[in-house]
Nucleic acid binder design. Sequence first.
DNA 1: GCATAACTGGAGTGGCCTATCCAGATATTC
DNA 2: GAATATCTGGATAGGCCACTCCAGTTATGC
Lengths: 204, 204
Amino acid sequence: MTRADAVRNRERIISAAALAFADLGLDASMNEIARRAGVGIATTLRNFAHRDELIATVFSDRMRRYADITEAAAARPDPWQGFQQCVTEVFELQASDRGFSQVLIGSFPAAPAFEAERARAYRTFDALTRRAQAAGKLRADFVPNDMPLMLMANAGVISHTIDQAPGAWRRLTAYFLQSLSAEHAQPLPAPVPTRRLYLSMTKT
Amino acid sequence: MTRADAVRNRERIISAAALAFADLGLDASMNEIARRAGVGIATTLRNFAHRDELIATVFSDRMRRYADITEAAAARPDPWQGFQQCVTEVFELQASDRGFSQVLIGSFPAAPAFEAERARAYRTFDALTRRAQAAGKLRADFVPNDMPLMLMANAGVISHTIDQAPGAWRRLTAYFLQSLSAEHAQPLPAPVPTRRLYLSMTKT
DNA sequence: GCATAACTGGAGTGGCCTATCCAGATATTC
DNA sequence: GAATATCTGGATAGGCCACTCCAGTTATGC
């Protein structure tokens, strides 16, 4: 039987980690998290032997929300508005948490349930893309794999501006959305091969 | 009198640091650099007491090149082609070195000569911007302060793709340039206040 | 070729990191 | 309320970090 106080401690660790990741990013130290939780380092590491487990636990809600945002956008009647809403809201989600911004451009193979949500988002985004292209609104040479590219770009902006200029990502978003419109689109260089980009998102 | 072998050591440190920064980014440890240079840690730190001095020394060439690229673009007769060339070549310079990519979105107040080159680039870019806008090619609501925003975005892409998909930044660049065209430009959110963005680029 | 100023690298310090160990504390069960 | 299974946090180890100290080495000027 798991003891009641152990459950309480586990939850304190998760709460503390959520704050620490938001403040400091994903590389907040386990020591720091233990300190904030008012719990020993041993207790923290007993509950979450690998940092990735803690990350997956802390951000499972947000990851689900990520996939939900994509599905809600796909449910909108207007294909192009749906696509734009998806990009905007995902970027906004990224801006809401330094840690989650990094989660979205990372990969956590040790947490299958977590990655399943990401896969759900990708599948839906794929459909969203095709629908917007079929409607002639999204440029035909856009590929779903451009999304991680944009997430990386947005993460770069967010990590440097979120404290001093928290709205900077909105301007980036606007630039992106305009360049994704099918109207007057100019040719692009070749897209990034999916496999290779995914590889780059594997843990180091 | 500075001894000949001391000069030689200093140069070995600079060369080793250039490689280490390119491989590992700006946070390569001083220990690692000393090891690569085949020199004691004490010698390394005696030559460069602060990491920033070493960074400014290693990247002074590239920083000058950055400003030169901007000036060369400003010297081109066609304002819009000049502007596009500037953005493309600066992004390419960023892609050529993980460390320099970070330098371009950082700030090194302890190295005034270094920052003077950056200021030269900014001044020229400002003129380049106005000229391209006067020609009606660059959208009127673009502000020079959007450049650091794009540099941050590009740095984000580069840091995650340079190994596995080294051409990814080109696609980002193409998207950006299209959204900067004056033709069919849609309204944007407010630009990031200059002061605040600069502040965010100050060392932590 | 010697005296000396200039320079060297290794050893040591203190800090923070992950990770493990274990004697003691505590919730639970009966 | 005693027995026990569960859980705790401090101490500890080993690694890497920036940084300092100093006895010993080496280039240089005469």
